[in-house]
């Protein structure tokens, strides 16, 4: 099985890492870039496929040269075999459609020059853009079948099919079992869970981890960078120039007038804390 995993670097929104200016705008320069948290599930799905069936996993990302560290992180977590960074000034400020065109072109180049792919994995929304559109749009360009919101995956290499469970939202939430032919795009849901039932799978998992540690150290030897010329992309169709949408304004969500007058309490303010306890005590568990 040959897989590609699409990943993105995003600002690290975890407490302590993220930096906002006084107006509450994200300060990207001061906020470190990490792998998009949701992409971890796509990587897990690719790893599961590799552990169970063997093969090769390539990780691909579009972003500035600084994203190499994101790819290194991805390599270590998925025991990836190699890395592809699509990096070019012309790609900057792309919206989802311009991004999808770039990813699609890179995947086509990969298939023409490296190998045919069986599976392309992507995560659900990115932590910064939060659109959830890029995976399905990349798939539209590839003209492959797609399974989104996958929470469990089984691939049958002999039949060249996959079976997946996926989540459907609506007025009631549902779970579907679907079968699709390969090649296929799989977008994992944050609820995705890999399973390794057999002992041999767990051993293989361990073996791959050991093997990858060294590779992730010298990840740059396994890194290929493509620019727009490599991908034969017309600058009018990528980056800002190729993006249908723009962000016209970012406004603070208007602060509603105070609805309640909060009593301020310092933790060491005994009177205040006691008053608070009086409010809570009626709900205390009985003996």
């Amino acid at each position: 099985m040959r897989s590609a995993v699409l990943t993105k670097g995003v600002p690290d929104f975890s407490e302590g890492a993220v930096s906002f200016d006084e107006d509450g705008h994200l300060e990207r320069g001061k906020t470190p870039t990490v792998m998009n948290p949701n992409d971890a599930f796509a990587l897990e799905a690719a790893l599961q496929t590799k552990v169970r069936h063997g093969g090769h996993v390539s990780v691909m990302s579009m972003g500035p040269p600084g994203y190499e560290s994101v790819l290194q992180e991805a390599m270590a977590s998925v025991y990836a075999d190699d890395l592809y960074l699509l990096s070019d000034r012309e790609c900057a400020a792309a919206d989802t459609w311009a991004t999808a065109i770039t990813l699609c072109s890179a995947l086509e180049k990969y298939q023409e020059e490296v190998r045919k792919l069986d599976l392309v994995f992507a995560g659900f929304k990115t932590a910064d853009g939060e659109t959830g559109q890029t995976g399905p749009q990349t798939c539209w360009g590839l003209e492959w079948p797609i399974v989104t919101h996958a929470i469990a995956l089984d691939v049958d290499p002999d039949e060249r099919t996959l079976r997946a469970k996926r989540l459907v939202e609506g007025d009631v939430d549902e779970i579907e079992t679907v079968e699709a032919s390969l090649p296929c795009v799989v977008v994992t849901d944050p609820e995705f869970e890999p399973t390794y039932r057999k002992a041999s799978h767990r051993l293989e998992h361990k073996r791959l981890r050991a093997e990858t540690e060294a590779r992730a150290e010298s990840y740059d030897e396994h890194l290929t960078t493509w620019d727009h010329v490599d991908m034969n992309l017309d600058p009018d169709y990528i980056g800002l120039d190729g993006s249908p949408t723009i962000v016209s304004s970012v406004d603070p969500i208007p602060k509603a007038p105070s609805e309640r007058e909060a009593t301020m309490i310092e933790p060491d303010d005994r009177d205040g804390m006691e008053r608070l306890l009086e409010e809570m005590q009626p709900f205390a568990a009985g003996d």
Partner: peptide
Amino acid sequence: DFSDYFVEGDLFEVLPRLTEAIEAGEL
């Protein structure tokens, strides 16, 4: 703006205190 009580402190300190006080019935 939409709280009745606002304990200005670190939850890692305040939560255990509240838990203990509620269990003990007193601060």
